[in-house]
Amino acid sequence: MDVRADPTRQLVRLRGRSYVAFVFSPVVPIVEWLAEIDATLARSPGYFVGKPIVLDLAAVDLSSSAIAHLVGSLNERSIRVLGIEGVEEERLAANMPPLLTGGRACVITRNEPAQKPEPEAKPKPTSLLLESPVRSGQSIVFMEGDVTVLGSVGSGAEIVAGGSIHIYGTLRGRAMAGVNGNSNARIYCQKIEAELLAIDGYYQTAEEIDVSLRNRPAQAWLQGDTMKITPLN
């Protein structure tokens, strides 16, 4: 086929967006002000790393080279200056951060330290308990660990678990254990009439399961690359 795409001109779209930045307002003498910054950094190193910083120079009267020196000193402390406000534009050289105007004061919410402990406080459960039979057509997927069923798993139902599967009833449907690549996962059931058993991707269908095992308590596990199904008593 001879299809040629005409080069289309990409339109440059300009959009506005506002962000929250920290504002530093240095005071003279600059050396002492820098010492104060150093003290803050000593208490919490890296506190300003990755944070947008704006320099407000309205309270001081600095020459172009003094501004360049101040920006350089902050850079040495891993503080990157996003923009400068409160000075005449002529004093800013081309290699310096741009002049900002029209900034509005706002409250800085420090949410990071408060957030951190929460995910650790509640570890995710590593097992799932089902107290009723799993009916045909239902699919139970639990990647985080073991699944225990107090009842039967109907024909046409399936259990998918990251860990092992325990069924205190008849397994008539499908059971897939260790789906995250856990080859140590096992499947246990009180009565085996399974349509399919799988552990870590290795599977056996109903046809391949030994007839002598049927209707008996059984377990399935992996021995290397082969699935073993043996009676439990």
Binding site: S132, V134, R135, S136, G137, Q138, G154, S155, G156, A157
Partner: peptide, 16 residues
């Protein structure tokens, strides 16, 4: 018969 029983099982799951 088996097909009816399995469909019933499915319906019971939906009732629940």
């Amino acid at each position: 018969e088996v097909s009816s029983v399995r469909d019933s099982d499915r319906i019971i799951g939906m009732l629940d």
